[in-house]
Design a protein around this nucleic acid. Structure first.
Lengths: 118, 118
DNA sequence: CTGTATCCGATAAGATACTG
DNA sequence: CAGTATCTTATCGGATACAG
């Protein structure tokens, strides 16, 4: 729940309305989020395999990031109810795939053309 | 100064080492940073005109973002010492220009293909 | 197995006052 | 004009414990 504490809130809202890029970056900046996206793209479709792949991620963060990605329609959640224990699978949407391609481009750039201080 | 509080610090370091993209996104996620970059690209080269263009930004945040952009070699700072009062101008580097083009792509994407919840 | 709820420390943003 | 210093508050990440 975001508090409406005057400037902080209004500035962020202003930026997000000015250009959707700000909202997208705000999403991407959440730790692990891009890694989860990439990991799903690489074929990891289950909670447990994702957790294994991203070795240091915690349960609650992974759950939160999956929920976010689903809300933004970047992945879809598919639960196989008949089975016990319940099996849940995640996969990229078209938009999610497109985003991961764009991020790949940014990734190339950051590794080849950027210089990071300290 | 970043504290070495075990997991928090180590996770961020792990991610930044895994792929430079994470470090780049961490930079871009700082509020106003991309707007400052775009505003310079559009021809605003001085502290005062930038401040006017980005109407709600505060002095200290603008100063901080300019310093960051300079550290990452995305802009250059050019101060004309002979003049009183001192005139300082900022402009994009090659890398900064390239980044702003990539971000434009992301911006198109976010406005045309993304759906943002609530 | 796939999550949810609550708490706490760390970081980031902004307000305000001040400087060469 | 172009910043810097200090303080307060908001948000985020992670630990722990628990649930369907």
């Amino acid at each position: 729940m975001r508090k409406i504490s005057s400037t902080n809130y209004h500035n962020q809202t202003f930026l997000e309305e000015k250009c959707a890029l700000n909202e997208l970056i705000h999403l991407l900046s959440k730790r692990w989020l891009t890694e989860v996206l990439f990991s799903i793209e690489e074929g990891n479709s289950r909670f447990s395999t994702l957790k294994e792949d991203l070795k240091y991620i915690s349960d609650n963060i992974l759950a939160d990031r999956l929920k976010l990605l689903e809300q933004y329609k970047l992945i879809v959640r598919n639960s196989h109810l008949g089975e016990i224990p319940v099996r849940v699978e995640y996969s990229l949407t078209e938009t999610g795939l497109r985003l991961s391609e764009l991020l790949d481009g940014l990734c190339q750039f950051s590794e080849k053309e950027m210089e990071f201080p300290g």
